[in-house]
Nucleic acid binder design. Structure first.
Lengths: 188, 188, 188, 188
DNA sequence: GATGAATGAGTATTCATTCAT
DNA sequence: AATGAATGAATACTCATTCAT
């Protein structure tokens, strides 16, 4: 029951913030979209900032779980990366609103303790870097500055998501994973 | 004289906005940093939004001019892209504050007529895409979806700039252009 | 409940605006006089302009209702005008603050849609003119330019109210209706 | 020379204030209309308030002089009043902008020492009252409350001027004096 | 738990006035 | 005397958050 209401608020907030941006989203608008009273929001979240944190937390958790599950499988590293990209893009296709928030609001100035946004920005690239290091060790790809390349890949993904959303052409995400992997496999 | 004052304000605003983000930057802080009165800001800009637009306009103009100049030279397309990347990263190294604003505030919801931020987001990737098309025509690189790849490259650049700034490690930008070009040359 | 709060604000605003004039009345002063927070004003009104409009709307409605009620009665036209004047002056005597605002702020430059101030200035004289036309038709008074005379009477009323308020001598309003009617009956 | 510049400013201010009202008239607009710099205004006036005072002062002086001149003539009192009304309306016809300011801004909250606006509001009705008293003494008109009737006449004049200006029909002022005098002669 | 009216701290912007040139 | 850039005090209005019901 409590989870339900929290989810309703998260979805309403995602809807509005994707369209107006965090700072132009009013608590009252979220409440209206959620079909509840403003006060109710504060029974589930401490602040507006908190809602944004939670949106990131949910997405981050999905990616974590997926990667954990992926690690147990017996796959080439580049295949893992590809599978992950496909999964990531799939999530964005399912909820472009969330996608827009992930790219737009990731640099949000933080004040909170639990910092899922910082995690998102730090840990995901770190995991990509780790996978690249592994791939080099396995001699799947040749030597490179994996820190730079990981940042490059992480940014590139964001760039494509942004392009897809701004152009209102979510479909390009379907081809994107393939195209990127092709580039990376050849290029690395 | 007028330009001087406008420049002073632009620099002060860049300084503060890079640290606090646009929405957490107060007009009074900009004035203090600039060593002028609050009212003076509004003798040179119509609004806070206007200042951000201007910051983008200045940077966009620099890139335009550089690319125009580059087009006259007799270079391979991939060399042009490389040269441009080096120039771009050099600018960021010279003013990381500006770099941070370019990546952070680019999705800023706009209200103004003159829209330099939108231009920055639209025209720069479009120019990269055009260069890629040219490179394919010249058989410098093999066929690919240039729209996706251009978005990929544009995003990747932002990702690296962001990483460099967030990690307070501007130096990686020195290597970044080379590393990226190596990847692209091989991969495309 | 909502009406109560709106009324409280209307009265507080009337009190201050009568003393300082619209432009020298601060939202904070109204709030203080009303014993509420500044923000609360804006839960009931969209703007300071809106409050002034509402003050006029309330008074206009009173006059309308009174005239409607008067029309059903079987009276000579000049008696109706006299009765209306008495009523009008009585309202001013009851709330000189409102009276002062009605005469002082009627030329307020308007920006709003609902325009009760314009109505007040247009419809009340129009009704007086209509009554005069009727009186001429009934041969109660002789021919005259009713447009001019209506403007004359409407202005005259304001002049007396202003005089009464400026001289801090509200009592003259008690005699005013009689004196005016005497003049009009003889003069028209 | 100094008078010239002061006159230019007075006229420019009259033009703008008649259209926008005192509080919506900016010093910069007056300067622009006058074809001078903002600073120059303050070489001739101490403040914006001061300009409005001056506008009233000029008009008040005209009426004074006219009345003084009128007193020397051998006329019935009611003829004097009529002549004065004609003169007053003539001035308004010549400069409706000034007319609008006289009626609109007369209740302007004063802060200054020299107070021509207060004079205008006090002395002109007082002079009308004095003339009425004289007329009663001469048995030109019958007994009445001259204070009320003076306020009535003064307000009535304003009402007609306002009507003429609001309806953009200055011409009714040509008939107004006659119509009013007819009413007063018969009615008093 | 849900509500939504009340709160009041917070800020962009304006504009009369000044004064160095 | 004329200028107009610089000033900064002043204020309407917003909106996240609270809390009595």
């Amino acid at each position: 029951m409590e989870e339900d209401k929290k989810e309703i608020i998260r979805k309403a907030a995602t809807h509005i913030m994707a369209r107006k941006g965090f700072y132009n989203t009013k608590a009252s608008q979220i409440a209206e979209e959620a079909g509840i009273a403003v006060g109710t929001i504060y029974n589930y979240f401490n602040s507006k900032d908190d809602i944004l944190e939670y949106i990131f937390a949910v997405e981050l958790k999905k990616r974590y779980n997926y990667l954990k599950q992926l690690n147990d499988k017996d796959l080439m590293v580049m295949e893992k990366i590809e599978t992950f990209l496909i999964k990531h893009f799939q999530e964005i296709i399912n909820s472009p609103d969330t996608g827009r928030i992930l790219v737009r609001e990731k640099d949000f100035p933080r004040k909170m303790n639990q910092d899922y946004i910082a995690d998102y920005l730090t840990k995901l690239p770190a995991m990509i870097m780790k996978m690249l290091d592994e791939a080099i060790a396995n001699r799947e790809i040749s030597e490179c500055n994996t820190e730079i390349i990981a940042a490059f890949i992480f940014g590139a993904i964001q760039g494509i998501v942004e392009k897809a959303i701004n152009n209102n052409n979510i479909d390009i995400l379907n081809d994107a994973a393939g195209e990127i992997i092709k580039l990376l496999k050849k290029g690395l």
